[in-house]
Design a protein around this nucleic acid. Structure first.
Lengths: 338, 338
DNA sequence: ACTGGCACTTGACCGGCGAGAGTGCCAAAG
DNA sequence: CTTTGGCACTCTCGCCGGTCAAGTGCCAGT
């Protein structure tokens, strides 16, 4: 028995099932694919594939549908990367180039990703803790107030206003500004926090209250977890395309979207490169019939956050995977540019 | 024929239908409500109500269900305001008090509103153009760069960095700061823009390029339409509760959420006070079986934006209306406080 | 104006039945 | 050993008809 042909059969079944959403039998399979063998042979192959766990039958005397393991094999070894069309590339580019700030980039990418894939798209906002310090500014306002501005490598601007116990003199502020800048420039935010903590000791004891107040505000800003948890979701209307199995396919996804923590877990484990989680691989029972495709994106070579799509396991993997990684690439480029 | 009793019948039907989601007949109506009359009498009333357009029958020999007009009558004249329970009030309060900034307030209110109403909740971010200027700061950074910070009455902080053609001297910056502050403080953003435009003329011709550059950046910031269009949506998982009529009840709502413009229109027409749009009153055919309840909210007495819920026409109007206005009140208070 | 009674309508539910699609297996042919 | 054609078998799906319960409309009587 030829192993090659058996894998061809598996591929054909996945492709057909994704296209028709219906269990595929030996006869109808041969109508769409020229495999050069008879239905009986295909049946034997199917039986073998089912034995090995790649296929399953909804019921006796129905066609076969792929199992999670079957999709996995398809993704790993059988699918050929589907390049995006030039039109699609252009769509991504024009969509993203109009963005005015980081938030806008994220919102636009969610939209374009949802449109390209016809699925639910998820984009995590660039992580603060994974960014580096691009610029820090310390500015005395009127009275005893000081304005702190942090600009990160991802282009995010955070500002805080600190109410000090006493009015600092010009010299101290200038001194602070240069030493803070020196200590943190180019550092990742967590490291920058450590450097800042060390910095306090180097100041005159009389200035400590003011310095401490400013530094702690900065470290709080650096480790603001809220912004690490933010995500944008789009394309929920595409859930309508998932078909009629509301309770198994649509409701769990909506619930996952509400529970942002779950989504973050699904996306967050993506280290680098494209990650595909199929059905049970997501680790969530409720998501048994959905698949998550995600990848990290970042400015330059620094991974800032992740983005991806959530869809039914019966999805067009090659196209979706291509779209996800293309959008990630463009988003990274856009963030690096501005 | 007693008009009063006929309206009692209508109210009873609306309440029963909302509770059971099934057409209500004369007999089962009397099992739940003591109207002191016989089923036959109720039937006559029902026939009259149907004649007048308040009720309809899915098919002959089924019970009646309210029409949009029936719900309208119920909302306008038949429903009694359902006060929130103390527990619910406390829930809103504790949920909102933890918020750290405006975005957080919006996201938390969307969540609490969705949970209270078991529906899809929508909160528009506080409008920039309807806010007033609370504080403006002009700060020289290193080189020819200037940092502008605007804090609005709604607590939003916007900052811009301007690259000037030449390095401004300290005096000019100080002058600018005080005159800009003087001209715009307490003004609404559109008016502040006008004042700023006038301001340019009052500066020495040599300083004009710098002043113009800063002022135009500010006016752009003031009229940033993007932030006026932003909305937060939550509780989409509650769509699952709408029942099984996916195409008529769930899909259109998801699509409307994607098309934020549609949502903004639905919310945005709310001037002040609670607005209820039932089915066809929404002006969107696709939303024929959904109702929108919205109200404006604001810090102090200034309407900043709107919030509300989207749900099936067969919803618990009194409870939802109470929740929407309560949340709006608390959100307004929270924004005014910080 | 209300009520009881009665005939009528209609969707929901159930069991049976035939058609269609698909399978598994076996014996024969390469 | 692999492939193939044939054949019996198994399910699901859609359809049909009958029964049931809920509900209506109407009419005559109070």
């Amino acid at each position: 028995m030829s192993d090659d042909r058996r894998l061809d059969v598996l591929r054909a079944i996945v492709e057909d099932y994704v296209a028709t959403q219906e269990p595929v039998g030996s006869r109808s399979l041969l109508e769409r694919h020229q495999l050069g063998v008879s239905p009986a042979t295909v049946r034997n192959d199917m039986a073998a594939l089912e034995e090995e766990g790649y296929l399953t039958q909804p019921h006796t005397s129905a066609g076969r549908i792929p199992t999670d393991k079957g999709y996995r094999m398809f993704v790993d070894r059988l699918s050929t990367v589907k390049a995006l069309s030039p039109a699609e590339r252009r769509a991504i580019e024009t969509f993203l180039t109009g963005a005015v700030d980081v938030d806008d980039v994220v919102q636009r990418s969610v939209k374009v990703l949802a449109q390209l894939t016809n699925q639910v798209a998820i984009v995590q906002y660039p992580s603060l803790t994974r960014s580096t310090v691009r610029h820090i500014e310390v500015v005395a306002l009127e009275g005893a107030r000081v304005l702190l501005v942090v600009i990160t490598s991802s282009g995010r601007v955070e500002q805080r206003i600190v109410e000090l116990v006493s009015t600092p003199d010009e010299e101290l502020i200038a001194n602070l500004r240069s030493r803070i800048t020196h200590a943190t420039m180019g550092e990742r935010l967590p490291e920058a926090s450590l450097r800042l903590a060390d910095l306090i000791q180097t100041f005159d004891i009389a200035d400590r209250p003011i310095v401490t107040s400013i530094v702690t505000t900065l470290t709080h800003t650096f480790s603001n977890e809220r912004s690490d948890e933010r995500i944008a979701v789009g394309g929920t209307a595409n859930l309508a395309r998932f078909g009629s199995d509301f309770d198994t396919a649509i409701k769990p996804v909506l619930e996952a979207i509400e529970e942002q923590v779950v989504l973050l877990k699904l996306l967050g484990e993506a280290t680098s490169g494209l990650t595909v989680r199929i059905g049970s691989e997501t680790g969530h029972e409720r998501l048994a019939s959905t698949a998550v495709i995600s990848t990290a994106y970042g400015a330059d070579d620094l991974a800032l956050a992740t983005l991806g799509t959530v869809g039914p396991t019966r999805m067009d993997y090659p196209a979706t995977m291509a779209a996800v990684s293309a959008v990630a690439r463009y988003v990274g480029r856009t963030l690096a540019d501005n």
